[in-house]
Design a protein around this nucleic acid. Structure first.
Length: 287
DNA sequence: CTTCAAACCTGTGGGC
DNA sequence: TGCCCACAGGTTTGAA
């Protein structure tokens, strides 16, 4: 599933293949893909024709193609969204949702999305805390790879929350970019059970788990991201290979790489939490 | 204000 | 073989 490292791989691919090009024509093949564009498909395609892509940018799991006049194509990959470059005329993918052709008639950009949780929208860029970003995501916190990310403040905010530590890690307003996979990996590295109450974490524990999240995402980025199946690929259709480096996620009943204890899986927020019951003991009292 | 859970989706795979 | 259900999960929305 695309979390920060996977989205960053895609962003870099878009920067390399799309920046500097002028859009000739956009086709929306499935209206749900632009459901967050309130003015509808005709407005979306009409306003994009002739626009020039200046750069590909990202915050957390959101990415956007910056256009001129403080506008941008804002994208979220959801669970299965892909941005792939294809030669014009290549056969349509089964789940092709949006096609972007360019004036130079070079490779076209395709938004492909099986589960349709992702989508595109036109957004106005606004000034926020020294950054230019889509107004609709101004509520998202900075991610750990942002040069202006403030880890001391993030730990402080984390410890004022009254919730479980994993819920806090997944809260994009606190720190953005972390999803279920890297949350579990960070908690394993920090030796913290997912249900530990945030208000009881020490400053050192808070710092440790946020540093672990930052490190594991940086390592995943260097590996090209995590792929379990064909649902995450870069703009050239290639998978990342960080899955082999995961220590807990998806490893239920397999031995912990630190202590050999079988990894546990528990239901959590309509998904799963993977953890080592020995390295990450459950808190004695759930608040 | 904060916290929480349901809803949105489709393809895959296990059980029977 | 085929049917049914569980599962994958990020964000939005509305309720408490």
């Amino acid at each position: 599933m695309p979390e920060l490292p996977e989205v960053e791989v895609v962003r870099a691919g878009l920067q390399a293949h799309v920046a500097g090009r002028v859009i000739a024509r956009v086709d929306v093949l499935h209206p749900r893909a632009i459901r967050r564009h309130a003015l509808g498909p005709d407005d979306f395609t009409g306003r994009l024709a002739g626009a020039r892509v200046e750069a590909a940018r990202r915050r957390g799991k959101y990415l956007w193609l910056e256009l001129s006049d403080k506008e941008a194509i804002l994208a979220h990959l959801g669970m299965s969204g892909q941005m792939v470059m294809q030669p014009e005329g290549a056969p349509d993918e089964k789940h092709l949702r949006v096609r972007v052709r360019f004036a130079d008639e070079g490779p076209e950009l395709r938004f492909v999305d099986q589960r349709t949780f992702g989508g595109l929208a036109l957004a106005d860029l606004v000034e926020a805390d020294g950054d230019l970003l889509p107004g609709s995501i101004a509520h998202i916190g900075r991610d750990p790879m942002d040069p202006a990310f403030d880890p001391v403040q993030a730990v402080k905010t984390l410890r004022t929350r009254r919730t479980e530590v994993k819920r806090a890690l997944l809260d994009q307003t606190l720190v953005s970019g972390v999803g279920n996979i890297y949350a579990d990996e960070a908690l394993w590295r920090a030796r913290l059970h997912w249900s530990r109450p945030t208000e009881k974490l020490t400053n050192a524990q808070g710092r440790t788990v946020l540093e672990a999240a930052t490190e594991v995402m940086a390592e995943a980025l260097r590996a090209g991201g995590t792929s379990f199946d064909a649902l995450y690929v870069n703009v050239n259709g290639e998978s990342g290979y960080f899955e082999r480096s995961l220590n807990v996620y998806g490893r239920g009943d397999e031995p912990c790489r630190r202590c050999g204890t079988p990894i546990s899986r528990e239901p959590f927020m309509n998904r799963s939490s993977y953890f080592c019951p020995r390295c990450q003991p459950r808190p004695r009292r759930s608040r």
